[in-house]
């Protein structure tokens, strides 16, 4: 380790500090703005720190708007999607990595091709199908289309490659059934992948504004992001209130990310490794 501080090094530190401030500032502005009253929020020069902190924005949010319900909806959608994606993807990823069967190559190619396709481009027929199933404007309309997620399958396949074949062989010789082999032998090995996919799916689903926007419409069915977007459309310049909503939508997810940062980072990196 060389510890030479070159002019270039100093410049880099300054630059990184400036960038850090720029990247953290919007989050800071949400958090402080949430505690500013309406007149304080639009004051120029701006208050860098709320001079008279108030909870009135949160009161308005929780009493005049069903924000608690929105929060519940976001949690419900994200948790259920997370569980379903993780279970289905790990089953699929496991056999794609560890079994040899007819149609395997073709199936895997289809998943890979579908990974590049954003859901948005098929959104109109997707809404049609949801309507046909009679679940439009329910939380399931957001959850179900997110489950057959090729990226999840791909990620779990990557992690499943680590399962030693001999272990599976010996389980078979001992007369262990397929499902039990998966649960008691494969699963403990792919657990880190399961965790990474869980956190990845949770964050993605929580922030998947587009799906929520086209699938949900009644005020009581909105998610917190959608609720904030609706508030913004209704009262464009009540910035304090809107920041309180933004804070409500951001805090849970930032907390989850900070706690599980390691798993998440691993998921992102594994998903990019060539298979």
């Amino acid at each position: 380790m060389k510890k030479k501080t070159t002019p270039f090094g100093v410049l880099t530190i300054i630059l990184l500090s400036i960038l850090t401030i720029l990247f953290v500032f919007p989050f800071y502005w949400i958090m402080t703005g949430a505690f500013k009253s309406q007149p304080d929020a639009i004051k120029i020069p701006p208050q860098w720190w709320p001079q008279a902190p108030t909870l009135e924005n949160f009161e308005k949010l929780l009493i005049q708007n069903p924000a608690a319900q929105w929060l519940f909806n976001s949690v419900f959608i994200s948790v259920v999607t997370m569980l379903l994606v993780c279970i289905t993807s790990s089953l699929a990823g496991y056999v794609l990595a560890k079994k040899r069967f007819y149609g395997q190559k073709l199936l895997f190619s289809i998943f890979i091709a579908a990974m590049a396709l954003p859901k948005q481009v098929v959104i109109v027929p997707l809404v049609r199908i949801i309507n046909f199933m009679g679940i439009h404007d329910t939380l399931w309309a957001v959850i179900l289309p997110l489950i057959g997620w090729p990226f999840g399958v791909f990620l779990m396949k990557q992690f499943s490659e680590n399962i030693p074949g001999e272990l599976l062989e010996s389980a078979k010789i001992d007369g262990c059934g397929e499902l039990r082999t998966f649960v008691s032998i494969a699963f403990p090995i792919i657990k880190p992948g399961f965790a990474a996919l869980a956190i990845f799916t949770f964050i993605n689903t929580w922030n998947d504004y587009f799906m929520q926007l086209v699938m949900l419409s009644s005020r009581s069915k909105l998610t917190v992001s959608l609720g904030v977007a609706t508030l913004q459309a209704e009262m464009a310049t009540n910035y304090g209130l809107i920041m309180a909503g933004a804070a409500l939508s951001a805090i849970p997810i930032v907390a989850v990310f900070t706690i599980f940062q390691k798993s998440f980072t691993q998921g992102i990196t594994m998903g990019a490794v060539k298979g």
Partner: peptide
């Protein structure tokens, strides 16, 4: 640094968008 540069992603597109709308507001 991972956290710093990932913060805007995690904050969520809606929260990020509404705060920038305020930052860009012509008057306030």
């Amino acid at each position: 640094f991972r956290c710093v540069f990932f913060l805007p992603v995690v904050t969520g597109s809606v929260a990020v968008t509404v705060v920038w709308k305020w930052i860009y507001d012509p008057l306030s």
